[in-house]
């Protein structure tokens, strides 16, 4: 039995040890915003925030998250009230198919909290663990840059 908090809600579930945190969030809790792109630890689509740090939820078992606080894309803004980062993604056309987007957002949230992101190079370096095949990254960088410049948080 594990007990953990996801986007402020406490869940208790019986899980098999080998169940990945990504599969747990998606299939046990129905939070399908977290996407699974490779299960090889490369693409970053499954990135969530665990105890304040962005992590790959495909490289973490649900049992390891017992007692943890998790933030997923569902915990950012809502459809009617997008967070500043989400809004900036829309304004700058930082997503196309939308599959990598939850991972990009959660990485973006962690980067914005931890780094000054003074240059675009820093943003690009910070995003280098998240693959996107649609955007060529340019608008993603621009969207994050705009949030840095607005200085009103993630």
């Amino acid at each position: 039995m594990i007990k953990l908090t996801v986007n402020g809600i406490v869940y208790e579930r019986e899980v098999e040890p080998r169940l990945s945190l990504a599969d747990f969030l998606r299939h046990e809790l129905g939070l399908t915003g977290t996407h699974v792109g490779c299960e090889q630890g490369v693409c970053g689509a499954c990135t969530v925030i665990l105890n304040g740090d962005s992590v790959r939820s495909c490289l973490c078992f649900a049992v390891q998250a017992d007692g943890a606080e998790i933030e997923t894309v569902e915990g950012l803004g809502s459809i009617d009230n997008l967070s500043p980062l989400q809004k900036s993604f829309q304004e700058h056309h930082a997503l196309q198919c939308g599959f990598c987007t939850p991972g990009m957002l959660m990485t973006g949230v962690d980067l914005l909290r931890k780094y000054p992101l003074a240059t675009d190079e820093e943003i690009r370096e910070g995003l280098s663990g998240n693959l996107c095949r649609c955007t060529g990254y340019q608008h993603v960088v621009r969207a994050i840059r705009a949030v840095v410049e607005a200085g009103n948080g993630d």
Partner: peptide, 9 residues
Amino acid sequence: VAHLAIRNK
């Protein structure tokens, strides 16, 4: 070393 999410864990 790798990427932020890997370095975090």
